[in-house]
Design a protein around this nucleic acid. Structure first.
Length: 795
DNA sequence: ATGGGGCTGCTTTTT
DNA sequence: GCAGCCCCAT
C-alpha cells in the first residue's frame, strides 16, 4: 500500500471518528465503528447502551463497511487526499460532514438484512422508534427485523413451522396454560402432585427446553425415579402440544432451533438473509437462545451482543451468565469493548454499586466511572417494623417533593419480593400520594380476559383441546368434566380433536344424552368462525362476548362483575390499538401480541405518580430518587439464597441493579421486625447494604440508643443524629409522635370498645412498642385493632 | 354439575 | 395474609 493510500484511509477513519465523536465517547465510537465479525459490548448500567446499539445499526445500514474497508479509488490523487485531510479539522456542519462520509459508503446493509433481538417488547419498541428517528425514514426502519426473541421466532415458525410439525394457525400457551396442561397430564399418568409438585415439574420441563433437551434425550438420561417420572410427563406433554397444534413460550425458541438444525435449506435462507445479527441483554440468554443466534449468524459471523454480566438476574428462568462470560472464548476472534462511563448516577451511588459487585467472582470486571459530583450519601434507614418503614418512605417523598420541587414520578420504591408491597401500598393509599403498583396479576392473566382469548384461539385453531375445555362450560352449558372426558376419550379413539367429536356428536352413542348441547356449542363456534373471516378483532370480541352468552353471564352477576366487563372493554381497546398500529391486522397477530405482552410494557412514565415494583421489573429503568425497601437478610438476599453459593451472586447482582437505578439519591430501608406471610419475624440489615457498601458512603439513622422497652413513654428523643435527619426521622418513625400508654390485654380478656361494644380478646401480638389484638365482638364481628388506637377498656 | 368452605404454601417472572 | 386448590355437600 502506498503512502498516499494510507493517508487516504486514515483521513477517512478520522472523519468517521470526528462525526461520531461529536456525540459519543471513544469507547462508544469504537463500538459503533466495529462492524464486521463477532463483537461483545460489555455495557455497564447507564452507559448509553441503547444509543450505541441504535447508532451502530444505523451506521451499518447507511455506510456498511466503509470505516473498515481498505478500498481506495483507482484514480486516487494527492489533491483528493489533501482535501479530505483538510476536512478532518475544517469547520463543517453536520450535513456537510455527512455528505463527505457518503463518499465512502461500502456495501451498505439493506434494512431487511439487519436483525436486532431484544427480550422485552418495550426494548424492541424503543429500538424501533429510535431507529425510525435516526434513519429519518419510516419505510426503511419498518423493514428492519427488530423484535423480541419470541416474536422473531414466531415469525419464522409461522412461515416454516410445518417442517417441525407446527401448522401456521398454532396456538401459544402462556405459563398458566402450560401449568394447567401439565396438571392434566399428571392426573392422567396418575402421578401425585403431593409427591412431585407441579411447580417443580414445570420448571424442570422448561429448563430442559431451554437447554434444547428433547423428551427422548431427557428420558434416556433420567436416572432416578423422580427424573423418570418427569420424563414421562415431559413426553406426554410434548405430544399433547403437538396434537393441539400449540407451543409454549419455551417451544417458541426450541422449535425454531430444531427447525433450523433439521432443515439446512431454511437455515441457509436465514443465514443468507441476515447480514448482521445484534442481540440485546445478552447476559439473560439461555442455551437455546445462544444456539439460535449462533445459527442465524453462522454464515457471515457478523454477530454483535450487548449486555452486562453484572446485571444477569434471570438464572431462575434458565438464563446462563456463561453465555456472556464465554462469548470471547466461543468466538475467539471477537472484539471486546467495555462501556464503563456512566451517565446516570452520582459518584457516591456508583462507588456503592462498584463496591457491592466487587464481592462477586466470575465477572468480566468493569468499574463504572462518572463525571458527576459525589452527590448525597446513601441513606440506610432502620425502622422498627414495616409500617414505620412505609411511613418513612412516604414522609420522605412528601418532604423532598416540596423542598426540591420534584414531581412524584421522580420517585420509585423497589423491593425484592412483591409481598413487601402490601404495607407500602397501604401507607401510600392513606397518605394520598399518587402511586402505581406494578406487578400482581397481569391484564391478560385475568380470568375473563383469558376466557375470551381462549374463545378466539379456539376459532383460529379448533384442535386446541386445552382451550376448548377451558371455555366449553363458561358460561355454564351443562357440559361438565364428565361429559368432556367422554368427548376426549372418543377423540382419542377416532384420532380427531375434541371439537371434531362435538361437531358430529349425534354419531356417538355414548353422547346421546348430551348431543344437542354439544352440537349447539360446535354450531356456535362454527358460526363465530365465519364472523372471524369478515370482521376485525376489535369487532369480533364483542360478537364473541354476545353470542357465547359470556356478557350475559357477567351482567347477571351484577356489581361484582362490573370490573370484569370493564376489563373486556379494555380488551376491545387493546384490539383497536393493535389494529391502528399494525399494517395488516389479523386475528393470529392480535392473539400473539396478547400472549406475548406484559404489563410492564405499559409503564411509560405517563402518570405523575410514585412507582412501586420489584427490582427485577426495574431493570433498564432509572429514577432520580430510589427507595429500596426490605433491605434485610432473609429478604434481600432471600432466605433461600443466603446459604447457597450458587444463588448468592445473583442476589448481589440484583442489589447492583437496584443501586444503579438511582440517579441522585438512594435510600435503603430495613426493619427490625416485619410481618411477612402472616407472621412477624425479626431481621438484621442486608449484607449488601449494611456491610458491603463502604461505610463512608452511608448515612445511618440508627446511631441512637436502642429503643426503649416496650410500653414505656420515651422521655426524651435521643439525638446523636444530624439535625436534618433527626427532623425527618421524628415525623416518620415507628415511635409515633404520641404514644399513649395503653392497658395490656391478654387472650381471653373481656374488653369494651367505644364503637364495637363488648368482646373477647382472641390473640395478642406484639408489634414493636405496640400490640395488635384480634377481638371477637359480641356483635359477631372479628376485628384486628392496634392497642394504641383502639382505646380498649378491660372489663 | 355446581358452589362453597377449609387447607396449604409461598422469590424473582423480560416471553 | 391471601390466593389457589381440593373436596364435599347439594
Amino acid at each position: 500500500m502506498t503512502n498516499l493510500e494510507q493517508r487516504y484511509l486514515s483521513a477517512k477513519r478520522a472523519l468517521f471518528e470526528r462525526y461520531y465523536g461529536a456525540f459519543l465517547n471513544p469507547e462508544q465510537c469504537r463500538a459503533v465503528l466495529t462492524v464486521s465479525g463477532p463483537l461483545l459490548i460489555l455495557a455497564g448500567a447507564g452507559s448509553g447502551k441503547t444509543t450505541v446499539l441504535v447508532n451502530r445499526i444505523c451506521h451499518i445500514i447507511k455506510y456498511g463497511t466503509a470505516y473498515e474497508s481498505k478500498q481506495v479509488p483507482d484514480d486516487l490523487s494527492e489533491a483528493l487526499v489533501a482535501e479530505r485531510e483538510g476536512a478532518v479539522h475544517a469547520p463543517l456542519s453536520k450535513e456537510e460532514l455527512e455528505s463527505l462520509l457518503n463518499e465512502y459508503i461500502a456495501r451498505p446493509c439493506p434494512p431487511w438484512a439487519m436483525l436486532a433481538i431484544t427480550f422485552t417488547n418495550k426494548a424492541a419498541r424503543e429500538i424501533k422508534e429510535r431507529l425510525r428517528v435516526a434513519l429519518d425514514n419510516e419505510e426503511l426502519s419498518e423493514e428492519i427485523w427488530a423484535g423480541t426473541f419470541h416474536s422473531i421466532c414466531v415469525r419464522i415458525l409461522r412461515r416454516y413451522g410445518e417442517r417441525v410439525g407446527i401448522a401456521p394457525s398454532f396456538s401459544i400457551y402462556d405459563t398458566s396454560d402450560t401449568k394447567h396442561l401439565i396438571t392434566e397430564v399428571m392426573r392422567e399418568l396418575n402421578i401425585d402432585d403431593k409427591i412431585l409438585p407441579i411447580r417443580s415439574v414445570t420448571s424442570a420441563i422448561s429448563a430442559a427446553k431451554n437447554e434444547l433437551i428433547s423428551p427422548e434425550v431427557y428420558e434416556s438420561t433420567a436416572g432416578d425415579l423422580r427424573k423418570r417420572q418427569i420424563a414421562r410427563i415431559y413426553k406426554e406433554y410434548a405430544e399433547r402440544l403437538l396434537k393441539y397444534n400449540a407451543v409454549d413460550f419455551d417451544d417458541i425458541i426450541m422449535k425454531t432451533v430444531m427447525l433450523l438444525e433439521e432443515n439446512p435449506d431454511v437455515a441457509e435462507y436465514y443465514q443468507n438473509k441476515f447480514s448482521y445479527v445484534c442481540v440485546d441483554e445478552y447476559q439473560d440468554t439461555n442455551p437455546a437462545q445462544f444456539k439460535l443466534t449462533y445459527l442465524l449468524s453462522a454464515k457471515n459471523r457478523n454477530i454483535m451482543v450487548v449486555g452486562d454480566d453484572d446485571q444477569s438476574i434471570y438464572r431462575f428462568r434458565g438464563a446462563t451468565v456463561e453465555n456472556i462470560l464465554q462469548f470471547d472464548k466461543v468466538y475467539t476472534d471477537a472484539a471486546v469493548i467495555k462501556l464503563e462511563q456512566n451517565y446516570r448516577s452520582t459518584s457516591n451511588i456508583l462507588d456503592a454499586a462498584n463496591a457491592v459487585i466487587a464481592n462477586n467472582e466470575m465477572r468480566h470486571g468493569k468499574t463504572l466511572r462518572t463525571e458527576k459530583a459525589e452527590g448525597e450519601k446513601i441513606t440506610l434507614y432502620r425502622a422498627e417494623n414495616e409500617d414505620g418503614e412505609a411511613r418513612f418512605i412516604v414522609d420522605t417523598i412528601l418532604h423532598r417533593r416540596i423542598e426540591e420541587r420534584r414531581p412524584y414520578r421522580d420517585f420509585a420504591v423497589l423491593y425484592r419480593v412483591n409481598a413487601i408491597s402490601r404495607s407500602l401500598e397501604t401507607a401510600f393509599a392513606k397518605s394520598g400520594v399518587p402511586y402505581r403498583l406494578l406487578g400482581g396479576t397481569r391484564f391478560y392473566d385475568r380470568k375473563e380476559v383469558k376466557d375470551i382469548l381462549a374463545y378466539l384461539f379456539l376459532l383460529q385453531n379448533t384442535g386446541d383441546d386445552q382451550r376448548l375445555r377451558r371455555i366449553v362450560n363458561e358460561p355454564k352449558r351443562k357440559l361438565g368434566d364428565k361429559t368432556m372426558d367422554t368427548v376426549a376419550a372418543l377423540a382419542e379413539e377416532t384420532g380427531g380433536s375434541m371439537f371434531d367429536v362435538m361437531l358430529y356428536a349425534n354419531a356417538f352413542p355414548p353422547l346421546a344424552k348430551v348431543a344437542d348441547k354439544l352440537l349447539a356449542f360446535a354450531g356456535l363456534i362454527t358460526d363465530l368462525q365465519k364472523d372471524a373471516e369478515t370482521v376485525k378483532p376489535s369487532e369480533l370480541i364483542p360478537l364473541v362476548m354476545e353470542k357465547t352468552g359470556y356478557l350475559a353471564m357477567l351482567k347477571a352477576g351484577g356489581k361484582a362483575m362490573e370490573d370484569d366487563i370493564d376489563n373486556l372493554n379494555e380488551l376491545v381497546s387493546a384490539a383497536v390499538a393493535y389494529e391502528e398500529k399494525t399494517l395488516e391486522p389479523t386475528l393470529p397477530g392480535f392473539l400473539e401480541e396478547a400472549v406475548l405482552v406484559s404489563d410492564v410494557d405499559k409503564y411509560d412514565e405517563e402518570a405523575d405518580a410514585v412507582v412501586l415494583m420489584t427490582v427485577h421489573s426495574a431493570k433498564g429503568l432509572e429514577f432520580p430518587v430510589v427507595f429500596l425497601a426490605g433491605a434485610e437478610e432473609g429478604i434481600f438476599p432471600g432466605s433461600q439464597s443466603i446459604n447457597n453459593p450458587e444463588e448468592l451472586p445473583e442476589e448481589r447482582r440484583l442489589a447492583y441493579v437496584a443501586i444503579t437505578r438511582a440517579k441522585e439519591k438512594l435510600y435503603a430501608t430495613y426493619t427490625a421486625q416485619r410481618l411477612l406471610y402472616g407472621q412477624t419475624q425479626r431481621f438484621r440489615v442486608s449484607r449488601f447494604f449494611g456491610e458491603e457498601i463502604p461505610q463512608g458512603l452511608l448515612e445511618r439513622n440508627e446511631r441512637r440508643p436502642s429503643p426503649p422497652p416496650r410500653a414505656t413513654v420515651p422521655s426524651a428523643r435521643p439525638s446523636a443524629l444530624s439535625g436534618e435527619f433527626a427532623r425527618r426521622a421524628s415525623v416518620s418513625t415507628q415511635s409515633a409522635p404520641r404514644r399513649a400508654a395503653f392497658e395490656h390485654m391478654a387472650v381471653g380478656d373481656r374488653v369494651l370498645h367505644s364503637t364495637f361494644g363488648e368482646g373477647e380478646v382472641l390473640s395478642v401480638r406484639s408489634l414493636g412498642a405496640d400490640e395488635l389484638y384480634e377481638i371477637a365482638f359480641d356483635s359477631g364481628e372479628k376485628k384486628k385493632l392496634m392497642a394504641t388506637y383502639a382505646k380498649l377498656k378491660k372489663l
